[in-house]
Design a protein around this nucleic acid. Structure first.
Lengths: 208, 208
DNA sequence: TTCACGCTGTGAAATCTTTAACAGCTAGGG
DNA sequence: CCCTAGCTGTTAAAGATTTCACAGCGTGAA
C-alpha cells in the first residue's frame, strides 16, 4: 500500500528534479535530494522504490530518467484539469496563480453564484453554479477546488461529487462529507496557523 | 510527546465547538465531534486527553468548558500576531481573508520589495523588506508568512529567523532551511494538487 | 434506592511510517 | 585486472499513531 505521504514526497522530488534539470545537472544522489526536501537519504530511496526506477551506485539517479519514472508512476504526463467553485478573493488568487504561469495545472471552468458569474477572470470563464452539471458533463475533469464560505461548502461539494468529480481540494473551514469513492483534502488556514503558533511558542522557549 | 496531528485536530475541535456553541448547544459526545471532524470517537477522546479536561459519561463534554480547556492548552486566549512577506496575488488574498473578518489572526505588518511597498493593503501597512528587522524589533510577533516567489523564499526566511521569528508558514514551492529552533510548515499547492489528482484517478477506478 | 445503559478514559494491540543496517554493485585507480 | 570507496535497494527494527476493548462511572427509570 502506498501512503499519502509517499505520494506527496514523490511530487516534491519531481519538482526538485525539474529544477536540477534546468541547471543542466545530470545525476543526483539520494543524499542531495533528501537535503533539498528536508528529508533523509533512506526516506528518499524508499520512496523511489515504488516507481520501480533504479539508480546507479556510482552515479546516483539519472535525472532525466527519474523524472520520467515519477511522471509515469504518478500519471503526470498530461497536466491536471480542475474546476473551481467560488470566485471570491481566494478563488481569484488561485486563478491568477495558475494562469498562465502554470500550464500543467489547468482550471478549465470556474463557478460562482449568479451575480458573480458570466465573466472571465484570469482567462477562465466563470459560470453560474447552476450550470455546474451541464458544463462538467462535456469535460473529463477529475478534480474540483472548493473556495466558497463554510455555509455553502457542503452543498457545493455534493454537487461536484454528483457531477462525477473524484478529488476535492477544500479550502472552507468545515469538514465536508464525500462518498467513499471521492478523495478529499482540506487546506484549513486557521488550523495551520494555530498549529504553527503552538510550535512557535514552544520553540521560542528552547535554546536559541 | 504530543504530535502535530493531535495539535491540528485540537484546533479543528475548537473551531467545531465554537460553531456548536453558536447554535446554543451545551453538550457534545465524542461520537458527534468525530462525525463533524471526519474522524473516530476513540481518536477524539485520545486527543482530548492531552488537555486534561474530562467529560461526563452521561452528558458527554460540556462545550463551554471544553472550549476553555482547549484554549488554555493551545494558548489561544489571545489571537495570533503574524507578519507577511510578499504582497503579490497570494499575499493580498491572505490580507483580505484575515481583515477584518478574522480578528483572532492579525497580520501586524506586511513587507515587499521597494516598488511594491509604502502603502496600505486591506488595512495592513506594507513596508520595504529592508525594514523587516527594525519593524519587528518593536513587536512581539512569533510567526511569519512567506508568500514570495521560490527564488526569494530562502533569503526572506533567513531574515525572518534572524529577526526572532519562531514559526514560518511557507507558500513558496521550495523547501527552505530554518534553524532547529524555528518551526516550519509548507503549504505547497502543486504538491497538494498532484496528490489529489493521483488519488482521484485511483478512486475513479473503484466502484461508483 | 437500585439497576441498566451507554458513555468516558486509558492500557494494550494493531497498524502505519521512518530509520537503521547491510549485501551487492559500479566506476575509477593502481 | 583487481581492489576500494561509497553508493543503491531492501529487509528488519524501531518508533509513531490509531484503533480496540473494557473497567468504571453518572444519570434516568423503576
Amino acid at each position: 500500500m502506498i501512503s499519502e505521504k509517499t505520494i506527496s514526497r514523490l511530487s516534491l522530488y519531481h519538482y526538485l528534479l525539474t529544477t536540477l534539470k534546468e541547471q543542466e545537472i545530470e545525476f543526483v544522489f539520494s543524499r542531495q535530494l533528501a537535503n533539498m526536501a528536508n528529508s533523509t537519504p533512506a526516506q528518499v530511496r524508499r520512496d523511489l522504490m515504488v516507481t520501480g526506477y533504479e539508480g546507479n551506485p556510482k552515479r546516483g539517479y539519472t535525472i532525466n530518467e527519474l523524472i520520467v519514472a515519477i511522471e509515469e508512476f504518478m500519471g503526470l504526463k498530461e497536466g491536471v484539469d480542475m474546476v473551481l467553485v467560488g470566485v471570491g478573493s481566494l478563488g481569484r488568487a488561485l486563478l491568477s496563480y495558475f494562469y498562465p504561469q502554470k500550464p500543467r495545472y489547468n482550471i478549465v471552468a470556474a463557478f460562482d453564484k449568479g451575480s458573480n458569474s458570466d465573466r472571465v477572470v484570469s482567462g477562465c470563464r466563470v459560470y453560474d453554479i447552476a450550470e455546474l452539471a451541464p458544463v462538467l458533463a462535456g469535460q473529463r475533469v477529475t478534480m474540483g477546488i472548493v473556495a466558497v464560505p463554510a455555509g455553502a461548502a457542503q452543498q457545493v461539494t455534493t454537487m461536484l461529487c454528483e457531477a462525477g468529480i473524484h478529488g476535492i481540494l477544500n479550502f472552507a473551514p468545515i469538514r465536508v462529507k464525500v462518498p467513499r469513492n471521492v478523495y478529499l483534502e482540506n487546506v484549513d488556514l486557521a488550523v495551520t496557523i494555530e498549529k504553527i503558533a503552538w510550535f512557535a511558542n514552544r520553540a521560542a522557549g528552547k535554546k536559541e
